[in-house]
Design a binder for these strands. Structure first.
Lengths: 200, 200
DNA sequence: TTCATTCTATACCGATTGGTATAGAATGGC
DNA sequence: GCCATTCTATACCAATCGGTATAGAATGAA
């Protein structure tokens, strides 16, 4: 190599595309629109990402590791399931707050049709998240024997609640600068999840 | 009027479009692909639906009333919240089973970005569903005073759980002829929703 | 300096996008 | 029969789609 990589433009393209995809969806945003918004040209984009899907793939590769790592730390089980769940919920909402565009993109991709062109890209992410939560519940089985055999259901149900709650908050706060997730919502969600409706 | 309407082709186009939208998403399916799959031509489609969005709008107008009416009947509160919730969950899954394409389309549209071109079409549907469930919880307040003030959260959380559970089942059973939702999943979901994890 | 390599833009490609102008076929009212 | 209306197809529209051929600018290694 004789020329050091000028990855500034790569970053600009990545951010611009993320913003547009998160707001209007992958399929509805054209490559020309991305490069125009970024103040660059198509060959630059294709130099760094190869094709349109590669751009989305790079977005996932850039943001999802930190997201999943943070959740994995939060899901660390130390004998207190409630504490772990509250940490997971907090990490989930805080990640959404830290990278709202990425979070929104993940959220929408997660519910896309099975034969959608982006499904192969989101599937590993979904599986990792599901595994992460299942592992937490499996670890909690010794203290909570009644969980046994329900790990898949519990992980799926928790993800659904977190997603839908986050969606409502994102749509509600769409006009503000930052999305705010109060600790109250976290406690409410976890308490309801653990004890049902009678503790609300 | 001098010629009675031949709405067969209208129905064919509606069904074909529904099937394609449910499988690959609204934005990824072109008008030409729809009419080719239906064995018709573009002017026929534009005669009945005006534009591409009108086609999606007609799909919603055709299927959502029955879906919501069925849920409304199921959500009828007779003093037993558990019974109502089980009826709602059963109605939700049975509707998904009865019209899997429509259900999948609703599900994916529900989590699309706020500025997606189809958001105005799905918003009324989402609000009606949310209202329907909130009303149920409000009616249950006299018997369950601790619910008061949490109706919005509970309706949102329930929807999220139902959606994510339905998604998992749909993806799991994607290859089979019909999607099967066992009564076991319904009981599990409602019991967990009411009493938390300790009854599983 | 020379040269290989990286990066970027102009201009273009064929294919497809949503949508339509035109005209003809079908059909019911009269 | 005749006419109005509904429905449908061929052929077309400008615009955009994802992607690229070509060439030049920039830069580091030698």
């Amino acid at each position: 190599m004789t020329k050091s990589s000028n990855s500034d433009n790569r970053q600009i393209l990545l951010q611009t595309a993320l913003s547009l995809f998160a707001r209007r969806g992958f399929s509805s945003v054209g490559v020309q629109e991305i490069v125009t918004a970024a103040g660059l040209s198509k060959p630059t984009l294709y130099h760094y990402f190869g094709h349109k899907q590669g751009l989305l793939s790079a977005i996932l590769a850039t943001y999802s590791p930190a997201f999943l790592a943070r959740l994995e730390r939060a899901a660390d089980y130390q004998g207190d399931l409630i504490a772990s769940l509250e940490q997971v919920a907090a990490a989930y909402f805080e990640s959404a707050q830290a990278e709202p565009d990425f979070f929104y993109l993940m959220l929408s991709m997660n519910y896309l049709p099975a034969e959608h062109e982006t499904e192969p890209l989101i599937q590993p992410f979904r599986l990792q998240l599901q595994n992460l939560l299942e592992t937490l519940f499996i670890q909690a089985v010794p203290q909570h024997g009644n969980l046994r055999g329900h790990e898949v259901f519990l992980a799926s149900s928790l993800t659904g609640s977190l997603n839908h709650q986050a969606l409502a908050l994102l749509k509600r706060d769409v006009a503000r600068t930052g999305v705010s997730f109060s600790g109250q919502e976290i406690h409410q969600l976890v308490k309801h999840y653990m004890y049902g409706i009678y503790v609300l």
